[in-house]
Simulated scan of single mutants.
Amino acid sequence: MAEAATWDALAAEATVLGLELLGGMQKGEGTLLLYGPDPARFWRVLQASPEAHAPDPIDRWSARVLTALARDLGGTALFPFGTPRQPFMTWATGTGACHVSPVGLLVHRTQGLNVSFRGAIRVPRRIVLPAPGPSPCVGCPAPCTTACPVLALTSDGYDLPACHAWLDDPRNDCMARGCAVRRACPASPPRPDAQAAHHMAAFHPC
């Protein structure tokens, strides 16, 4: 598949693995491909994997799966964790598939404010990329700007102490279901509560 891989074929292969091909950009004579969790499949695939009950299961799973995929494509896997630090935010906006939302978070046309990256693969050849679509924020009434119960994340910036204080409040449902701002985005597909809780626990350890 490596030499004949098209965008559609790569996207289909990513889905089988529990990933979504979120965007791509030309880098010199090569192509950089960005991968994130498939909202419908990722958590189920992870829970059935050898990494499910290991420390840092998501990073371990990502390293194994994307390293193997990169090898099949004749490319190199790059990750948003470990060292050296990679410029995933710059890459994400550079693909044209991600945009800056009214609350300053990245937003993606199919993943909304829940967009995240498990890794990237740099392949040493040019792949024809689909034209990037418009931001899902165009025409949106921006419920994200008022969704936070303590207004920690708005168009004016991010009040991190207020966010953490709210997560300590027993009235919050963000720890169990995920950030209310991200959930408010009409473009954000639903994901399992267990997945959201895992990420929130990493962000705000009890």
Rank of each mutant, 00 (worst) to 15 (best):
E3V: 14
A4T: 15
T6C: 06
W7T: 08
W7M: 03
D8I: 11
A11M: 00
V16G: 03
L21P: 00
Q26G: 14
K27N: 14
K27Y: 05
T31Q: 06
Y35L: 14
D38Y: 11
A40Y: 09
F42Y: 11
R44T: 14
Q47E: 12
A48L: 02
P50R: 00
A54M: 13
D56L: 09
P57L: 08
R64F: 01
R64P: 00
T67M: 02
A70C: 06
L73K: 00
G74V: 00
G75R: 09
T76Q: 08
T76G: 00
F81R: 05
G82S: 05
A92V: 07
T95P: 00
C98E: 09
G104S: 08
T110W: 12
L113S: 06
S116N: 10
S116L: 05
R118C: 02
G119L: 08
I121K: 09
V123H: 00
G133E: 01
V138K: 04
A142F: 13
P143W: 12
P143R: 07
A147P: 02
A147M: 05
L151W: 12
D156V: 10
D156K: 15
D156E: 15
G157W: 06
Y158D: 05
L160S: 12
L167M: 15
P170D: 02
M175W: 07
V181W: 04
R191K: 12
P192M: 07
D193P: 05
M200R: 10
A201C: 07
P205R: 13
